[in-house]
Each structure stands twice: as C-alpha cells, then as structure tokens.
Simulated assay, not measured.
Amino acid sequence: MEDEVDRLVAAWRRERPDLDVEPLEVLSRVSRLARHLDRARRIAFSEHGLEPWEFDVLTSLRRAGAPYQLSPGQLLTQTLVTSGTMTNRIDRLTKKGLVERLPDPNDRRGVLVRLTPEGRDRADQALAGLLAQERAILAQLSPDRRSDLAALLRQLTAPFDNVPG
C-alpha cells in the first residue's frame, strides 16, 4: 500500500539522488499522523465545548486524583506553558466554572487549583470522546502491532522527555 510519503520520498530520490532521504520515510509519516491526530483531538474536544488547552489543564487535575487539585506550579510542569499563560488559563477556566482557586493550607501565600464537579464531568466526557477518535485511528493495527509501535515511539521520545529544563 503506497501513501503520500512514498510519493514524496520517490520525488526527492529522483531530484536529489545525492541525499539520503530515509529519515523522511519515518518522520514525515509521524508528522502527517500528528496532524490527523490534532484534527481528531479538536473534534473530540469541541464536542464537549473544550479547547485543547482546556482539556490539558482539566485532565492534569483529573489525573491528580481526589480531590483533583494541583498548585499552579504543578500545572506548569504538566502542561509546559509559562506562568503568565497558566494564570490566564486558570482565570478563564474559573470564569467557566470548571476550576476553582483555593488557599493552599501548607503555604499562606499559595493557591491550589481544584476541578469543579462540572470540570470533572467535562474532562471525563472529553477523554471518552478522544479515546474513541484515537481507537479509530489505530483500528488498522492489530494489538501486537500497536504495542510494537508504542515501544518504538517510546524509544524515540524518551530522550526528549528525560532532558532537564
């Protein structure tokens, strides 16, 4: 079965036989798949009235377990955004009634961000929608092939995830 990347690679091999274009065979497919996944994610989130960034914050809190709260610093670490961006996001989610700010009992100057029941419901529903979209993308692969692919991708991404700063 031929895909667009096969045609792209063949064209580059014809036009630039002096270059080894083999990395394109893997990474162009990863890039194209990422675009399809981004589209599927946006569909799943919009069906539940969420933007991708809202889903990221809400699910960070949901994964924290009861009482579904984290400090803004912990949210920064999980979502990889700046402090100013996180403050803006918390403000917007608070206005929507999806999170609330509470005083941190361990730090008089600190706050905790807690998921509201509505935020928890929206996060749970959007996650179920996302998983349905992702299952559809992976449906062409057997469970063994999905496991193999996950292991290969982990091998490629782990060095980036384990770099300080």
Rank of each mutant, 00 (worst) to 15 (best):
157 T>I: 15
146 R>C: 05
102 L>S: 03
125 Q>I: 01
119 G>W: 07
93 L>E: 09
138 L>A: 14
113 V>L: 10
112 L>K: 13
121 D>K: 11
88 N>L: 14
98 L>A: 09
104 D>R: 04
107 D>V: 05
109 R>A: 12
88 N>H: 09
153 L>K: 00
116 T>V: 05
84 G>T: 10
120 R>P: 05
120 R>Q: 14
102 L>G: 03
114 R>V: 05
123 A>N: 03
144 D>Y: 00
150 A>L: 13
153 L>C: 03
126 A>G: 07
125 Q>Y: 02
102 L>H: 12
112 L>A: 06
98 L>M: 14
114 R>Y: 04
156 L>Y: 08
151 A>I: 04
132 A>Y: 03
91 D>L: 12
116 T>E: 03
157 T>C: 09
128 A>C: 05
132 A>E: 15
153 L>R: 01
98 L>W: 11
103 P>T: 06
128 A>H: 07
129 G>R: 04
102 L>E: 12
115 L>N: 06
151 A>K: 11
93 L>S: 12
117 P>R: 04
131 L>H: 11
90 I>D: 08
144 D>Q: 11
117 P>T: 03
112 L>T: 07
105 P>V: 14
144 D>E: 14
122 R>N: 00
84 G>F: 02
130 L>C: 04
105 P>A: 13
91 D>R: 15
109 R>G: 14
127 L>C: 02
127 L>E: 14
121 D>M: 06
133 Q>H: 04
158 A>C: 08
98 L>E: 09
148 D>M: 12
139 A>S: 15
115 L>V: 08
93 L>H: 09
87 T>C: 02
132 A>H: 11
83 S>T: 14
142 S>P: 02
151 A>T: 12
137 I>A: 08
110 G>I: 10
115 L>T: 07
145 R>I: 08
159 P>Q: 11
